[in-house]
């Protein structure tokens, strides 16, 4: 569970450390979303086979299975995109962490080398590192907000899937002896859509925490 109270205090103490954890947990949630999307697409194939066998009785169900399949495909494509983004975000986290670390150490050098003949030569590289760090930070924030809007996009097919699941239940009720198997399909689509919704919600939660901490 993602509880606010679990993450907030550490976020304040060491933003970069919890940033690593947050980005890694996003990646974990996304791979779970992927699994569930694949399950949906399997359920769609299954439903199609049942609906085909049920023939006339499941006539209303057939276009629904196609639609479920489309949604699953769409989700998989979106998650693939998001995964790429999340990977980029992780690399930026590493980069930013390294730069922050370098700035910290350079300041230490500057303090302890005050009397050194060439102490002044450090000023420029310290400034450059600070600049690069700031640039990296900006890039990071930009990616966070892009990722947030992409995650919002994934919510759409998940929401649509829940509506379809509700329709499926109605259609299933007219399918006679196929009622149970079609209802099971509707259930599993509904369940999967709910999981995706929750996971994406968690991702967004983790991300907006980084966004505000950054």
């Amino acid at each position: 569970m993602f509880r606010k109270s679990d993450t907030e205090p550490t976020m304040q103490v060491s933003p970069s450390k919890s940033q690593f954890v947050a980005v890694a947990s996003i990646a974990a949630e996304l791979s779970a979303v992927m699994e569930v999307a694949k399950e949906i697409s399997l359920a769609a194939a299954n439903a199609k086979a049942i609906a085909f066998r049920a023939g006339e009785k499941a006539k209303g169900f057939q276009p629904i299975t196609d639609f479920i399949n489309e949604l699953a495909k769409e989700t998989i494509a979106l998650v693939n995109d998001i995964n790429e983004h999340a990977l980029k975000l992780y690399r930026l986290t590493v980069k930013e962490h390294r730069m922050a670390e370098a700035c910290k150490r350079f300041e230490k050098v500057a303090a302890s080398a005050e009397s050194a003949l060439h102490a002044a030569s450090l000023r420029e590289s310290l400034q450059q590192t600070r600049q690069r760090h700031a640039d990296c930070h900006r890039e990071f924030s930009r990616h966070v907000s892009e990722l947030l809007s992409q995650l919002a996009d994934v919510m759409h097919p998940a929401r649509a899937a829940r509506v379809i699941a509700a329709n499926s239940r109605i259609e299933a009720s007219q399918a006679g002896e196929y009622l149970q198997s079609l209802q099971a399909v509707a259930e599993s689509v509904d369940h999967a859509a709910q999981i995706i919704h929750d996971k994406v919600h968690k991702c967004r939660g983790a991300l907006s925490m980084i966004g505000t901490a950054a």
Binding site: K108, V109, A113, A116, L117, A119, S121, L122, E124, S125
Partner: peptide, 16 residues
């Protein structure tokens, strides 16, 4: 050792 080392080297050479 990075910070003490660089600080020490600055006695003999500029960063660049």
């Amino acid at each position: 050792l990075f910070a003490p080392m660089l600080a020490a080297v600055l006695h003999h050479a500029p960063v660049d």
